[in-house]
Simulated assay, not measured.
Amino acid sequence: MDDIKYGEILMPGDEETQKEQETSVRRKFWPTLRKAARHIPFSRDVVAAFYCALDPQTPTRVRGILLAALGYFVMPVDIIPDFFAVIGYTDDVAVLTLAFSMIRGHIRQEHYDAADRALENEPEAMKTA
Rank of each mutant, 00 (worst) to 15 (best):
V77Q: 10
Y51A: 03
R61V: 11
R27E: 15
R104Y: 12
V74T: 10
I103V: 15
F73V: 03
T90Q: 13
E110N: 15
L119A: 07
Y72V: 00
A53L: 09
L70M: 07
M126G: 12
P56I: 09
H111R: 08
A37D: 10
V25P: 01
G7D: 07
H111S: 03
A68R: 06
I65A: 12
V95M: 04
I79P: 01
G64K: 06
D3G: 00
D2F: 04
H111G: 03
P31F: 01
Q57A: 11
A85K: 14
R44K: 10
T32P: 12
H106I: 03
D113P: 00
L119Q: 12
F100Q: 03
D3A: 02
M1A: 05
F29N: 00
P56L: 04
I79R: 15
Q57T: 10
E15S: 14
T17W: 01
F83W: 15
T23L: 08
V95P: 01
K28M: 03
A129M: 10
K35N: 15
L98W: 09
K19E: 02
P76A: 05
E15M: 09
G13P: 07
L33N: 03
L66Y: 14
M126I: 02
V25D: 01
A69L: 08
D91G: 01
R117G: 06
R44L: 04
E120L: 15
G7K: 05
P12S: 10
E20F: 05
L10M: 11
E8R: 04
L33M: 14
A114S: 02
Y6Q: 11
D2R: 08
E16W: 06
V74R: 01
E16P: 00
